[in-house]
Write a protein that binds this DNA or RNA. Structure first.
Lengths: 152, 152
DNA sequence: GAGGCTGGATTTGGAAGGCGAACCCATGCA
DNA sequence: TGCATGGGTTCGCCTTCCAAATCCAGCCTC
């Protein structure tokens, strides 16, 4: 149980979580990022997979490019016109832990079937992998043992 | 670089990330969960910290209660009326890794100041903590070594 | 060259939700 | 009784979402 506080240690306007939420905290953006994380790049592929209205998709892709999470590149297949594709940048790809953590939260709390539709393993050891808190020397820390530190 | 794919390995409708996004993937809900994570519980505290219009706040709190992420309880101070408070449930609190991962993403990519406003340490060793992928035997796995496994 | 297809982008009008202001009602105290 | 507090609701305006329609450019075929 989290102790009562009348307000957060840092006001939302100064919190990087709140800034991130302003950037990606809408449903379509999150779904687009998810598809991008699994390799989807083309406008019509995003569109057919997600069912996003085209105005929305166009606008969100544009915003994600402006904010540096996606890069817009042109590619061209033989005999076809040049088309854009949208590829995650390092900045965008760095959201992978967030999206996977959210996937695993959903696995646990939203879906009571035995095995989740998508899970993640270590490529080398084949062991299942979960998101966790880790110290710099590699030790896992339970969530309840976390302590908040404020900037001086 | 993520290899091109025309569609995700699992369609969004069957993906627990997409289900989670339907539940919490809006700006106000995420900000409310953030404040709740830091201990805010009362309607007027959420309201004054976040500046949420009261209709929105009331509706979102109600939805989060219905979905089991917050519990609505009544408390009463001496000489005051009974008031509701909204406390994270286990289900809600289990979103902590997601929100902290997003905070740390924001620290790195949205804020160029040296030290983030909020950081996290291990209560015992005082060491800084970050979100990571970990195998069941406790070894950290770099993001690039993750492999996707689909349900049979 | 014309026509058709593909594929991103834009326009349009209605629906839905956000938002600020006002209002409501219940509780407790002076 | 009147006032303050505090959660909730209503209302009208504004913004965004959404589906449908339209536009435009590149490429191929006839």
């Amino acid at each position: 149980m989290i102790p009562l506080s009348r307000k957060s240690p840092v006001p939302p306007a100064q919190c990087n979580l709140a800034k991130a939420v302003d950037l990606i905290g809408d449903r379509w953006t999150l779904l687009i990022l998810r598809s991008a994380l699994y390799g989807v790049r083309r406008f019509d592929d995003f569109q057919s997979e997600l069912g996003t209205p085209r105005t929305i998709l166009s606008g969100r892709l544009k915003n994600l490019v402006e904010q540096g999470l996606l890069a817009r590149r042109t590619y061209k297949s033989e005999g076809r016109r040049a088309r854009p594709e949208y590829v995650l940048t390092d900045k965008g790809e760095a959201l992978r832990p967030v999206l996977i953590a959210l996937t695993q939260w959903g696995d646990h709390w939203l879906d009571c079937d035995g095995q989740p539709p998508i899970s993640f393993t270590d490529m080398q050891s084949r062991q299942a992998v979960h998101t966790a808190f880790v110290t710099d020397d590699g030790r896992e820390v339970p969530s309840e043992n976390l302590r908040i530190v404020l900037r001086r």
